[in-house]
Amino acid sequence: MQNSKKILLLAACIWSYCAYAQQGGFTSQPVKRGDYSFVVYVSGGLGHYPAYSKDLAYLDPKIQNVNPVSTIRIMWHPDHLVKVGLETGYLTFLNYTLTDSAGQRGKVLLNATPLLVEWTMALTKRFNVFAGSGVYFLTTNLDYKGKTRSKKISVGWMAAASYIQPVTKNMGIGAELKWLDAAESRDGTICLQLQWVWRFLKW
């Protein structure tokens, strides 16, 4: 239940935040019936992937706990609540250096490019939730007694919540809390990103 407590605490914080959301400007909610648009979300930030030193103790690891996560998403905003789109990007799940029993050092990087179909819904004018599923193209980059690059495709998921502050009628900036998980990476990364949102096509 430890996780549940954390989630509830998070829920309370975000709920409070949402309650103060202001009106006007950019919104992901339908502008009016019949409006259709494409919206691009460009996001960059940092993610945390749960990797514990004790699990890798035999490698004497130095784990980089926070790693960059950059994503781009295009959503189709029709005149109803639920919107659909695609997201891709580049992220690092796991990043650590190791030292073997002979003192030789090495480095492991597990990177991923997700390709996810996503659904989103505006909860308020500024606050949106996302959920999606698809594949992750995973790449291990190992530098220990030679360099090895190894790839694997994995099924995966995502969930996110974002808050967008309007800048112009078709543009906004925001922040997004996101969970990205590939089945083969064992655990997901939870990341916080800054976001630039642009409604680049409307008809």
Partner: peptide, 15 residues
């Protein structure tokens, strides 16, 4: 869990 994925043939025995 150690971050290594993909075909086993990609890795050397020492690794």
């Amino acid at each position: 869990k150690n971050g290594l994925l993909g075909p086993i043939e990609n890795y050397s025995y020492d690794q």
